[in-house]
């Protein structure tokens, strides 16, 4: 698999380590009333789709960026990649 790194172009997936579902970016509030519940959900439960999956890859043997890669789990076709930082900032409304 080749991952289209937004800064470095196509890179071998071997250079990366895999974390899992990109929803892990959105860590719940540990101080909230229902934190135990939301953290159980966050830590342990997964959508685990057969098909398009957005997932976190770390460019360990590379520039050490976290990427959100969109990949089809039934074919391994890679449909796109973004910097996880951009994804996280966009979710927070773009502010730094």
């Amino acid at each position: 698999m080749l991952i289209p790194h937004p800064l470095l172009g196509l890179r071998d997936a071997q250079e990366f380590t895999y974390l899992g579902d990109a929803s892990l970016i959105h860590r719940p509030d540990g101080m909230a009333e229902n934190a135990a519940e939301t953290f159980f959900d966050y830590v342990y439960l997964r959508d685990n789709p057969a098909g398009v999956h957005r997932e976190l890859w770390f460019h360990e043997q590379g520039d050490r960026s976290w990427l959100v890669v969109t990949r089809d789990t039934t074919t391994h076709e890679i449909l796109g990649a973004e910097l996880a930082r951009d994804v996280a900032l966009a979710a927070k409304g773009g502010a730094q």
Binding site: L10, E15, Q61, G62, D63
Partner: peptide, 16 residues
């Protein structure tokens, strides 16, 4: 596993 043809003078990268 770097594309050698695209890795001209002035290129640098970390890899395995």
């Amino acid at each position: 596993n770097i594309d050698a043809a695209g890795f001209g003078p002035g290129s640098a990268t970390r890899t395995g």
